[in-house]
Amino acid sequence: MIPSDYLSVALLIAGAIFFLAGTLGLLRFPDVYTRLHALTKADNVGLGLIVMGLVVQAESWAAVGKLLLIWVLVLLAGASVAHLVARGALQRGIRLWKR
């Protein structure tokens, strides 16, 4: 393994851990709003780290671009959908959990 491989491995594993965190949040958090926090942020960071881990290995600039394009699209869609779901939940009177 060359040094960039170690970086790639670290990024990929960190990404997977964030995906685990997203699922844990989805399962453990008490209401739809808090679950949205977990899912949107943790999964986007997880995917971002996996993309970075693969960018380190990429063979061409176009491949780097495609990976980044995928990530940006997921980010944009994820943030918008999170807002739409939360907004819909609030409009439909789903109460938020408070400690």
Partner: peptide, 28 residues
């Protein structure tokens, strides 16, 4: 979450999780 709910939105969240994870798995 799909099974547990309780609200429809919660079920839909699982579908979102599926989407992001599928992208990651495909990249790998």
């Amino acid at each position: 979450r799909i099974f547990r709910g309780p609200t429809a939105a919660d079920r839909m969240l699982s579908a979102q999780l599926f989407g992001t994870t599928a992208v990651a798995v495909l990249l790998l």
